[in-house]
Write a protein that binds this DNA or RNA. Structure first.
Length: 419
DNA sequence: TCTGGGGTCCTAGGACCC
DNA sequence: TCTGGGGTCCTAGGACCC
């Protein structure tokens, strides 16, 4: 059996842990630059605030209904996630961390020795009492069915208490009949549209389609999903491997046409790429650099361009990465446009330890030492060390007007309780 | 005025090899 | 007039996820 454990309204719940006055109140968390709604508490969902809602369009509704609004605080969410996953790891040796707020737990043979429903409740209790985060648990013979079970556990939490098990064919059939086709894991907008056109409205109807047909129309991905959903174990637990691509892409707070402004930002993104690469002990060989104008401004000239540039040698040195990224930028930058966004994607990642020697070019070995020191200093001093290409004086900042403290990772930002 | 960010996998088609 | 067969590797684009 598999369990899918999912944190309820994760980002909103993280904010609540450190501000209990928010219990039973509507809470939303915004994306970078305080742009869109990316997390909502149940109360906020009940107010029909959709996922992805632009904050400026909903400002009035927030004010009128006393919605508590937060900028996203990834330092906090990332750390809380780690804590939750550590606790879940105590319940099985086989765990796949599927996303920041979700994990699959393989409970192979556990049903012979445990009452799985009781086991699920123990998970809820442990996570809640040790982190304050509420979770839901779906248990079933396959991953796709565990997803369905989880949805039921959450949707009917008053009745299920947050745990739901699918373990017999008739029960599974009912659950699949209840699951709308667009809500199935792996069925997105496009597939939903195509299936609805065929009058396939729920997961049970999807499962009854012929294998060959599903394979032809939705590729092997769709077929695997269909089999898993019908109860045949097809998708198995995957180790959480290192990332194969690493990206830093951000919209600017304003539009810029000046090359130097772009240069400064692209440098900063390249430095961030370097930090991420070093954290997972990888080098990269290829950088993709892109720039974009504001797609929402129909009145302005539009331009988008992207280019791939190889690094001289596999590297995670911020110095080399900045140089490479700027080479790319210089090739795609065009004067006369109002740029709103830029980004860098690093790919062709290799383990930092297996460095391939080059015949003619070799990176200065001092880079490695230097980066180590820079990383240590930045961790201790909170990002004080910058590179020449980055803006040293006038620090530009993404809009984060409603940022909470990094309660769980910074001593000077601890929660303070007044007696 | 304002509209996110970061990932994975699969497929088709082109370039290349012998 | 006629012009093979069988591969691999890479990339872009499109689907999906949270």
């Amino acid at each position: 059996m598999y369990a899918l454990v999912d944190c309820n309204n994760f980002y909103a719940s993280c904010e609540r842990v450190f501000n209990p006055l928010l219990e039973n109140k509507p809470v939303v968390v915004l994306s970078n630059n305080d742009g869109c709604v990316i997390a909502r508490s149940n109360e906020a969902k009940a107010m029909d605030i959709p996922m992805g809602a632009p904050a400026f369009q909903f400002q009035k509704l927030f004010d009128k209904n006393g919605v508590h609004v937060f900028s996203s605080n990834y330092a906090l969410y990332g750390d809380m996630s780690k804590r939750v996953m550590n606790i879940l790891s105590e319940f099985t040796p086989d765990i796949e961390i599927y996303s920041i707020d979700e994990a699959f737990l393989l409970l192979a043979g556990f049903e012979e020795h445990f009452d799985l429903e009781y086991y699920g409740r123990q998970m809820i209790l442990a996570v809640k009492s040790r982190t304050g985060i509420p979770i839901s648990v779906g248990i079933a013979p396959t991953k796709a069915l565990a997803k369905v079970a989880n949805k039921i556990a959450k949707k009917f939490s008053a009745r299920t208490g947050g745990v739901y098990i699918l373990d017999d064919p008739e029960k599974n059939r009912k659950a699949l009949l209840w699951t709308k086709i667009g809500d199935v894991w792996g069925i997105g907008r496009q597939y939903e549209k195509r299936l609805l056109a065929l009058n396939i409205r729920n997961a049970q109807q999807f499962v009854e389609l012929h294998d060959e047909y599903v394979r032809k129309e939705f590729s092997v991905v769709g077929l695997r999903l269909k089999r898993d959903l019908s109860g045949l174990t097809t998708l198995s637990l995957e180790a959480t491997p290192k990332k194969k691509n690493i990206a830093v892409t951000r919209a600017f707070e304003n539009m810029y046409s000046d090359y130097n402004e772009l240069k400064e930002r692209v440098s900063t993104y390249a430095v961030k790429i370097g930090e991420k690469l070093r954290r997972q002990e990888s080098n990269c060989s290829l950088l993709q650099v892109f720039v974009l104008t504001n797609q929402f401004r129909n009145d302005l000239k539009q331009y988008r361009a992207s280019i791939s540039v190889y690094t001289p040698t596999p590297t995670n040195s911020s110095i080399t990465l900045v140089q490479t990224a700027l080479t790319g930028l210089s090739m795609i930058y065009k004067e006369g446009y109002q740029y709103k966004k830029a980004g860098i994607i690093a790919s062709k990642l290799t383990p930092a330890k297996q460095k391939q020697f080059k015949l003619f070019s070799e990176e200065n070995p001092k880079h490695e030492q230097l980066m180590k020191v820079v990383d240590q200093l930045n961790f201790r001093e909170n990002g004080k060390v910058k590179f020449g290409g980055q803006d040293l004086g006038r620090t530009w900042k993404i809009k984060q007007e409603r940022l909470s403290n990094r309660f769980s990772t910074r001593l000077n930002e601890l929660i303070i309780i007044k007696v």
